[in-house]
Design a protein around this nucleic acid. Structure first.
Lengths: 281, 281
DNA sequence: CAGTGGTCTAGACCACTGG
DNA sequence: CAGTGGTCTAGACCACTGC
């Protein structure tokens, strides 16, 4: 499946100008292109970017699964017919994006939410004093979990059609016995066929790790919109707060490899003893 | 001031093992080290990290000022007696940290808050529809600006001593005529000697650009703690909201080059038509 | 010890900018 | 056109891991 044929080596840099050249690359990008194919700029793409795209394809296709080693830099260099340095630069970028993890002396691994020391990869809520480690494990409580038809709003967020099947769940996270986070989440029905409240309740460990191992869905990136709100009656009851208590509303959309949205999550965070921590640079 | 002497070239990699070697580097790091000097690990530091440290020193010392070009990669390579590739890797990291900006064909520049298209470098508040560009310029209103003695809390945040002189200011930002952000900020008195309410009011452009050009203080990094709160009477009046309106409380500490805190800012954001946007990866 | 990633070098050529 | 950053290569050696 990889160009081990073709004796026209060495492939000159001229080949780089042609993204759709069948020699090295079989259209790694340009999936979102449409119309006027010959008019746009040549869109020079460096070799290492093309290699990066090829590695990305192997990740998406599941050739290398989360937690596994990928071939060594030398092997990949031979496979793609480029120098080690070029493969290296491609891997560097993927590692910077947290898709791969380099371990000197051992190899390069596909990033995973499992076997990871951080329990909550995307959760930015921290206790005001100490770290989340010292706080002990959160108590998790699945309130609800059911399948339903996507509303227009949910469908838009998940890039589905209104009425498509979605799975909706609600849970409460408690720290030190105190309800602190109320989360509603929506998942597209098709990739998560078979996910039940029991499975969610029984599983200990990061939810995203469950998604990986059971459904082959790896979350890679997320965007959050944060607001200050007050709870409705249900929410106030579940968090055990008054109806005028200001709460942090955190709406998260999590994406898998190809920037496809795979989860919508709406969290209400109690911030009297915790805060949302962010680093700007 | 730079090691142009010393004919013991080529400096072998062995030199790298000795961070305090007078040959190439005069103690670029290890400023925060204390006690048992000979007991710790050798702390191998790659050449490019040392070069990065030297470049950082030149940035801190003001040898190259915000907005200026730094010497070309070839020049720096000659100056530090290393290959272009090594200088390149050092610059790569500094560019990734937004301290330098590379422009192909022109050179590498010291990052600056001035001459920059983004008005607010660290502000993550976005309108729910459209971008901040389309919203038009914010209306800025300095409410107050005075010098006073640092409270214990303020002093701790700014790494000062209680009672040290600090400058305190309060302002309101309005978008589309609507008061949206109320900010209190504290600056250490000494570096910002001479800053007045008039200067703040008259200056159009990013506040951090003013800090750069007038006081030689460049903000490099910041940390924020976010909560949901309700305003006190003064705050409610200034933002023209009711006393039970939930608001985003954003406490920011901004740091200059050597990770020294140089600003404490406490913002109250109205989030009925705006949201705080964050990207997780 | 072999195999992996990590660093460093030297040299070639490409892409972009501006005189 | 010269000068800058950007890409690519080939080869050497170092640091780390595990057998």
């Amino acid at each position: 499946m990889i160009p081990t044929d073709d004796a026209s080596l060495p492939h000159a840099l001229a080949t780089l100008m042609i993204p759709s050249s069948p020699t090295l690359v079989d259209t790694p990008l340009a999936a979102a292109d449409s119309g006027t194919p010959g008019s746009a700029a040549p869109a020079f793409s460096p070799l290492y970017q093309q290699i990066k795209g090829l590695i990305l394809q192997s990740l998406q296709s599941g050739e290398w699964k989360p937690g596994e080693v990928i071939p060594s830099e030398m092997d990949l260099a031979a496979r793609y017919r480029v120098s080690q340095g070029t493969v290296r630069k491609a891997i560097d970028e993927l590692a910077a994006e947290n898709l791969l993890v380099r371990r000197q002396g051992k190899g390069t691994f596909v990033a995973t939410h499992a076997e990871q020391h951080v329990q909550y990869r995307f959760l930015r809520l921290m206790p005001d004093f100490g770290d989340r480690q010292s706080e002990g494990p959160a108590e998790r409580n699945i309130i609800d979990c059911k399948r339903l038809r996507a509303s227009a709003e949910i469908a838009r967020a998940l890039a589905l059609r209104t009425g498509d099947s979605v799975l909706q769940a609600r849970r409460v996270l408690s720290f030190g016995g105190r309800p602190t986070i109320l989360e509603d989440l929506w998942l597209p029905g098709t990739p998560f066929k078979g996910l039940t409240a029991e499975r969610l309740s029984d599983y200990h460990g990061p939810m995203y790790a469950l998604f990986e191992t059971e459904f082959g869905v790896r979350m890679v990136r997320a965007e959050e919109k944060i607001r200050a709100v007050t709870p409705d009656a249900d929410q106030a009851r579940l968090l055990n707060v008054g109806k005028n208590t200001p709460l942090l509303s955190v709406e998260r959309i999590a994406f898998t490899y190809n920037d496809a949205p795979m989860e919508l999550r709406r969290g209400l965070y109690l911030t009297d003893t915790h805060h949302y921590r962010n680093v700007l640079s």
